[in-house]
Simulated scan of single mutants.
Amino acid sequence: MRRALLTLFLAALAGCATAPPPMLSATMTSPTDITLAWKETERDLAARTVEFATEPNGAYTVLQFAPPGQTTFTHPDLMPRTPFYYRLRAIHGPASAPLEVSLPPGDFDEKSEKDGHEWAAPQTLPGGPTAPRPVRETSAAPTDVRATVMHANGIRFTWTDNAADEEGYLIEVRAAGAKEFRAAAVLDPNVNSFGLITLPEEKNASYRVRAFYYGEQSNVVHLTTGDAQH
């Protein structure tokens, strides 16, 4: 009996263990094109950042917030004879319920460009919960998400910030007919108002707001590009 209980306990521990970070690999597909590949190891994953630097200890730049099903990325048309360093970082955190938004007809024209778009700047509005929760809890998800159509291609989002220790916020979008949400904007902690200029295919789309934190980082891979192609 005790042996059976011990077996169940160890199995439960194994199921709760944190998945190891993915092993990242890089291949030169041309003298100035690099393709990254990895095998997904985590189930509870919002996205992964694909990041690069040109120095071993340099500042990394995010190339993409890759959705969970993505396992490759190509970085094309790079500077010749330049070292490139790559890594992945896991993104976790609770998201709000999806919100459907439909925009009126119209393109982002010259008149729209002249709009100052002061409403679009990230802001921290007063108010919110008196007892914010740790971002690793589902109860820390943003609530009261509202979308105000500002013009034919602009939406202002506001929400209640329920997280105490988020590393930032993501505005995520899924255009009508798309299978997955993707990151449309990355915001600093404590922001609870932001205006998004949409893409043409996002006239009808679902949006949600995610309080996020960074998880495990992958290994770093390094390649140096060759001569420019002629």
Rank of each mutant, 00 (worst) to 15 (best):
A175L: 01
Q123G: 15
G116L: 14
P98M: 02
A95Y: 00
A53F: 05
E110A: 11
A131M: 06
P67E: 11
L125H: 01
P76T: 13
E51I: 03
I171K: 06
G177C: 05
G69M: 06
P67Q: 10
Y60H: 09
P142N: 01
D115E: 08
P105H: 10
R133A: 10
T130P: 03
F108E: 13
W159E: 09
V135N: 04
L78H: 10
G127L: 04
V173R: 14
E113M: 13
D144E: 13
V149N: 08
D144L: 11
P104F: 12
I171D: 07
P142K: 00
M150D: 02
P122K: 04
G177E: 12
S139E: 15
E113L: 10
D144F: 04
M150F: 00
P105M: 07
H75Q: 08
T138C: 00
T72Q: 10
K114C: 03
V50H: 03
R146T: 15
D115P: 00
P142W: 00
T130L: 07
P126K: 07
A95G: 13
L99F: 09
D144S: 15
A141T: 02
P134A: 06
R174Y: 12
A178I: 03
T54V: 14
T160E: 10
A163Y: 08
S102V: 15
T148L: 11
P105K: 04
S112Y: 05
G154A: 10
E180F: 03
V62Y: 01
G127V: 05
I91F: 03
Y169D: 06
L78E: 14
A178G: 11
E137P: 03
P68E: 03
A120S: 15
A59I: 14
G127H: 08
E113R: 11
D165N: 15
P132Y: 00
D115H: 05
Y60F: 15
N153G: 15
P126L: 02
T61M: 13
W119Y: 07
W119A: 10
D161V: 04
T61Y: 05
E100Q: 12
F108S: 07
L170H: 11
K111P: 00
G106Q: 08
R156C: 09
E180C: 01
A59P: 12
A183F: 04
A147Q: 12
D77H: 07
R48E: 06
F65D: 12
P67L: 09
